[in-house]
Amino acid sequence: MDPSAIVASSLNKTFNTKTGLWKTKTKSTIAVEDISFNIERGELFGLLGPNGAGKTTTVKMLTTLLLPTGGTAKILGLDVVRQTAEVRRHIGFAFSGSRGLYNRLTAIQNLKYFAELYALDPAITRKRIPELLELVGLSQRGDDRVETYSSGMVQRLHLARALLHDPEVLFLDEPTVGIDPVGARELRQTIKNLISLGKTILLTTHYMAEAEELCHRIAIINKGRIVALDSPDALKRRISGDSVIEATIQTAQAHILMDRLRILDGKTVVELKNSTEPEKLCIRTPEPARVLELLSPYLNPQYIQGLEVRNQTLEDVYITIIQGEKE
């Protein structure tokens, strides 16, 4: 048995849009460029990236909803272009947003309808629907019309629908968007439970903490290309500085502190975050002790009002990589 649940090989997607009525002009936009990765069975793989990076396009190609312009993709060894119907039987997917359900129907009616599309045996449908509603915390609202649901409830119903036919591979596109913190935590726990049941999950998200908590491996995607792919810990180690020092400073004294830190070598990155109020000096460094020594004469409210030393987070890694790409 192929250990890979999902294999993407040199996937490409270019969108051509035509403008003008008579003299039409075709504009090509590369949404995904030469993307390759393998996701093993039972793995939770995260796809991170800014808006328009190509995350959803990648998911749509893998879920057979979009034809790649080039490259190949296989789910459980099945080609997403040539064995579409087979692939669809083995995957479940849920996109974020309030659309995608029949709002005039109840949650149970929606699930019954989709159960028919997936050719589920009526006896299995009768058993699974209450189980899934329980799993996503909608047992009490199963008979209510979806139009009365909050966006978080809709999101959870999307997940229940994706799980109806008990697929081996799940694609979740920003599943916790619009859900309150408690609901999001419950949903993350549900996702962890699914992994313990042996499901393979590809998750896209904007929330770094969520990716760090859930994902075994993460691919950071920018402008259609994968710019980093590793485990969250390995990604964090990859960035030059081992520690982050954030100093809350008096704006007028910023240049003095910046000058003081200039003697450090190129491995230390000093950045003034003047978009925040009060301003913050963000120092990424492999020598936190040396930085603190340099700043110690200024540790008084006239210069530095607060100081925090912490390890790199996935967010630091993400921002460093994406900003590096911009430059």
Partner: peptide
């Protein structure tokens, strides 16, 4: 309009009866 097309057509259900 409801955004359900992806989910309906992304299922393995035969198209003619749909």
């Amino acid at each position: 309009q409801w955004g359900t097309l992806s989910y309906v057509l992304g299922s393995p259900a035969p198209r003619m009866p749909i």
